[in-house]
């Protein structure tokens, strides 16, 4: 068991995808944060960070949603989300609000205290062992926004290394994009699927039981195709792996 740690107040950002599609991932996130000694609060006024509209070019609409996000979260001590992509969006707020310097400044302050789950645990809390047990061979997918915009590479691996019974299998295509890209996945479905298949060609041959990542959106894409291709590999969010005992 990990040693008890000083309590830290965390505002949970479930993300709209987590809230509506993957509540189990969010539950697991709460479990993991509480085991790490955090007091977790969920503000029910929260909705979305605005990324879908932002990435689609609809910045006016994205600003409306982002402003609501700011109102909900800016008084929190720390905001944690089970997603690298949504947290990376927070770092895009200054670009989104370039014409409103005061909002951009508020956003920058909020981005500074908003964290993706694994980096919050490892970098902020210094927690690496959550007392988890999970008997499986796990392949890791380095989700793009976490990897390239937040620099999340070692943190999930550090956490997985402490999980009993878990064997981490490094994939050659671990850093290749899964092809999701938000509306990209439905605007250019054939290209999105070609990118996905390039990755899954390796995944389906690899000696793994589970493909895991920090982002539900990637996992949705990966799972959807794995199921269509009749693969036996399951997809799991990091939080679910870490919450296992």
């Amino acid at each position: 068991m990990p040693a008890p740690r000083p309590s830290r107040d965390v505002a949970l950002f479930a993300t709209c995808l987590g809230d509506q599609l993957f509540p189990g991932v969010v539950e697991a996130t709460v479990t993991v944060l509480e085991r790490a000694g955090c007091a977790v609060r969920f503000d029910p006024r929260q909705t979305c960070c605005g990324q879908p509209a932002f990435n689609s070019g609809y910045w006016r609409e994205a600003r409306q949603v982002a402003r609501h996000f700011l109102d909900v979260f800016e008084r929190a001590d720390a905001v944690v989300a089970p997603s690298g992509s949504c947290v990376a969006m927070l770092h895009r707020f200054p670009q989104l609000f370039a014409d409103e310097p005061d909002v951009a400044a508020r956003a920058a302050a909020l981005a500074h205290k908003t964290f993706e789950l694994s980096s919050f645990l490892v970098r902020e809390l210094g927690v690496t062992d959550l007392g988890a047990r999970f008997d499986a061979r796990v392949g890791w997918h380095d989700a793009c926004h976490g990897l390239r915009e937040l620099g999340v590479r070692d943190e999930p691996r550090t956490l997985l290394a402490a999980v009993q019974g878990l064997e981490l299998v490094e994939l050659r295509t671990r850093e290749s994009c899964c092809g999701f890209g938000g509306t990209f996945s439905v605007k250019l479905p054939e290209v999105s699927t070609a990118m996905l298949d390039h990755k899954l060609d390796e995944v389906m041959e690899a000696p793994i039981d589970v493909l895991a990542a920090i982002d539900g959106s990637c996992l949705m894409q990966l799972h959807g195709r794995l199921e269509r291709r009749g693969a036996r590999v399951r997809t799991m969010h990091l939080a679910e792996v870490l919450a296992s005992r």
């Binding site: 809230d19 509540p23 969920f42 054939e190 699927t193 959807g224 195709r225 269509r228």
Partner: peptide
């Protein structure tokens, strides 16, 4: 066209 559709959870997290 190429991927199984995700299902909305029976009950959202909230």
């Amino acid at each position: 066209s190429s991927r199984a559709l995700p299902r909305l959870a029976k009950r959202p997290f909230r």
